[in-house]
Design a binder for these strands. Structure first.
Length: 272
DNA sequence: ATATGAGCCTGTATGC
DNA sequence: TGCATACAGGCTCATA
């Protein structure tokens, strides 16, 4: 499932193929994504040039010379490949961005939890972006910030960390990893964690994300020649999907339970 | 206001 | 072997 590192790696892989290119056409083969793709989208972006490719949370933003932005979310199972017209379409290739270079950016998404929107140049914002918290790798994401926001909250730390209004880009895998690294029990009330420990959590989140982005960067050299982005990076994970296996730090078997409808793995001894 | 649960989907793994 | 069922999860929405 694409988390922030996968999205960022996708952005970097796409950038050399997209930047400065004109969009010849946008083909939508299946509109039924997380939200239906607007019917007039193709004609709104046809002929526009891609000036920048940026990222906000897990959204990829194609900034066009019209001032509009194309906003692509990979959802859970989405991935992108750069191909040419001779590459046959695969099952679940829902959207194609045909570039004047002859390259095609193909979006594949079996579960269709992804989405594609247009942000109009004159629009102030977008409902999906307006309430997002800070980027985890930005200066705004600090122990002080988390500690202050958590005041009085009784909900579990893990849910707090995964709340996109608190901080974006921390999905289930990296929430599990970061909490283990920071020694915080995922079920602990968010409001009952000290400032010092929140500082440690921020460091842990950043370390885990940076490591994953670097792993992605080495896995993936060129989108066109590697047939696109692998959805998963084979990064070493300490706790995720390791329930019952020994904790890498202390050796005690890791616990696994569901917390907030999500699989949660932690060490009873290292995480308090 | 915060907190919790449902639901969108389909590929994969498991159970009978 | 086949079929049925459970599970995975990012995100928003509805409800407590």
């Amino acid at each position: 499932m694409p988390e922030l590192p996968e999205v960022e790696t996708t952005r970097r892989g796409l950038e050399p193929h997209a930047l400065g290119r004109r969009i010849e056409a946008l083909h939508v083969h299946d509109r039924r994504l997380r939200w239906p793709v607007a019917e007039n989208l193709p004609r709104q972006v046809a002929g526009r040039r891609i000036e920048f490719l940026t990222r906000r949370a897990k959204y990829l933003l194609f900034e066009l010379d019209s001032g509009d932005r194309l906003m692509l979310h990979l959802g859970m199972s989405g991935s992108v490949r750069v191909v040419t017209a001779s590459t046959p379409r695969r099952l679940h290739d829902h959207v194609e961005l045909h570039l004047e270079s002859g390259r095609i950016i193909r979006f594949n998404d079996p579960r269709r939890f992804g989405s594609l929107h247009r942000l109009a140049a004159d629009a102030a914002g977008h409902p999906l972006l307006d309430h997002l918290g800070p980027e985890p790798l930005s200066d705004a994401f600090t122990g002080e910030y988390l500690h202050g926001l958590a005041r009085g909250r009784r909900g579990p730390a893990k849910a707090f960390l995964m709340d996109s209004r608190v901080v974006v880009g921390v999905g289930n895998i990296y929430a599990n990893e970061a909490l283990h690294r920071a020694g915080i029990h995922p079920g602990r009330a968010a409001g009952r964690i000290s400032l010092a420990r929140y500082r440690g959590l921020v460091e842990a989140v950043q370390a885990v994300l940076v490591a994953a982005i670097e792993a992605g960067g080495t896995t993936l050299r060129d989108f066109a020649s590697t047939e696109g982005a692998p959805v998963y990076f084979r990064q070493r994970l300490d706790v995720y999907a390791r329930g019952g296996l020994p904790c890498r730090r202390c050796g005690v078997p890791l616990r696994e339970r569901r917390l907030g409808q999500r699989s949660t793995v932690y060490c009873l001894r290292c995480q308090r």
